[in-house]
Design a protein around this nucleic acid. Structure first.
Length: 108
DNA sequence: CTGTTGACTGCTG
DNA sequence: TCAGCAGCCAACA
């Protein structure tokens, strides 16, 4: 597979439990901050990835579960709640506290 | 081959 | 402050 997608999946897997990140953060970490859509597209393809990709920990910059409709059961919100993240309807509560920035944490 | 859509973000009105 | 438009890259019809 391509390194670009691989990077995305890898970063997403590095997201600690109870934490989340945004497409823009990943895109920026990859150097394609303007191509945040590609991150979303990669997530769409993440279903084909062998190692499970916790795509439920990836949301838009508003902390909204924009991809919840695309996520398989039991549901993105349910999984996030299971992780200890408070989710109100389609939005993550205290998103700022659970936000995980790859550039800041994974920064080498 | 061209055109449209999309798990997004940022700026402008 | 809230709402709308444009930009970006890739896949699908």
């Amino acid at each position: 597979m391509n390194d670009f997608y691989d990077m995305i999946y890898e970063v997403v897997r590095q997201i600690p439990k109870g934490r989340v990140t945004s497409y823009g953060a990943i895109a920026k970490y990859l150097g394609s901050a303007q191509s945040s859509r590609m991150v979303g597209w990669a997530m769409n393809n993440s279903h084909s990835q062998k190692p499970y990709v916790p795509a439920h920990r990836v949301v838009n910059r508003l902390g909204q579960l924009s991809g919840a409709h695309h996520f398989p059961p039991p549901g993105m919100e349910a999984m996030l709640k299971k992780e200890g993240i408070k989710v109100k309807k389609e939005t993550i509560v205290h998103f700022d506290k659970v936000f995980w920035d790859p550039e800041k944490e994974l920064k080498v």
